[in-house]
C-alpha cells in the first residue's frame, strides 16, 4: 500500500463466475478491494452501500443489461462522474459508440485482452 492512499475499491458487475473469480483473485493480488455482483439489479444498491473508485461493467448480463445500468448511473447525480470501464464480448462500433456516449472511460473485449492487459487498463483508469 502506498503512503497516502487507502486501498482503491473496485466494483465489478459480471454474471459469469468464470470471469468473476479471475477478476477477484487477480485484482485483490494487485492490492485492490474488490466486490463482484452477479446481476445488473444489484449494482446501484451496492454502489449506494459503498461508493467504488471504479466500476467494471459487463454489457450482457442476464437480467438488466450493462447499457441500462450505465444509463441509470448517469442520470443519478451521485454517480454521474463515476469512472466506468465496459468489458464485454460484443465489439460492434455501434456498441462502443453507445457506451462512449455514456462516458465510459474504456471498453475492452474480454476474449481479446490478456489478464495482464486488463489489469493495466484498470490501473490506468485509477491513476
Amino acid at each position: 500500500m502506498t503512503t497516502n492512499n487507502e486501498k482503491k475499491y473496485i466494483l465489478i458487475a459480471e454474471d459469469d463466475t468464470a470471469y468473476g473469480n479471475v477478476y477477484k483473485t487477480k485484482l485483490e493480488n494487485e492490492g485492490f478491494d474488490v466486490t463482484v455482483v452477479e446481476n445488473g439489479e444489484l449494482v446501484l444498491g451496492e454502489m449506494e452501500r459503498r461508493k467504488p473508485d471504479l466500476l467494471i461493467l459487463d454489457l450482457m448480463m442476464s437480467d438488466k443489461n450493462g447499457f441500462e445500468v450505465l444509463q441509470e448511473l448517469r442520470s443519478n447525480d451521485k454517480f454521474k462522474e463515476m469512472k466506468v470501464i465496459v468489458a464485454s464480448n460484443l465489439s460492434q462500433h455501434a456498441d462502443v459508440e453507445k457506451v462512449s456516449a455514456l462516458q465510459a472511460i474504456d471498453y475492452f473485449v474480454k476474449s481479446d485482452v490478456s489478464v495482464t492487459e486488463m489489469v493495466e487498463k484498470i490501473k490506468k483508469a485509477l491513476a
Binding site: 468464470a18 481479446d112 490478456s114
Partner: peptide, 14 residues
Amino acid sequence: LRTPLGSMRWNLEM
C-alpha cells in the same frame, strides 16, 4: 463462442 473462449484464456493465464 467468445464467452467461454475468453474465460478459458483468463483462467489459463492465471
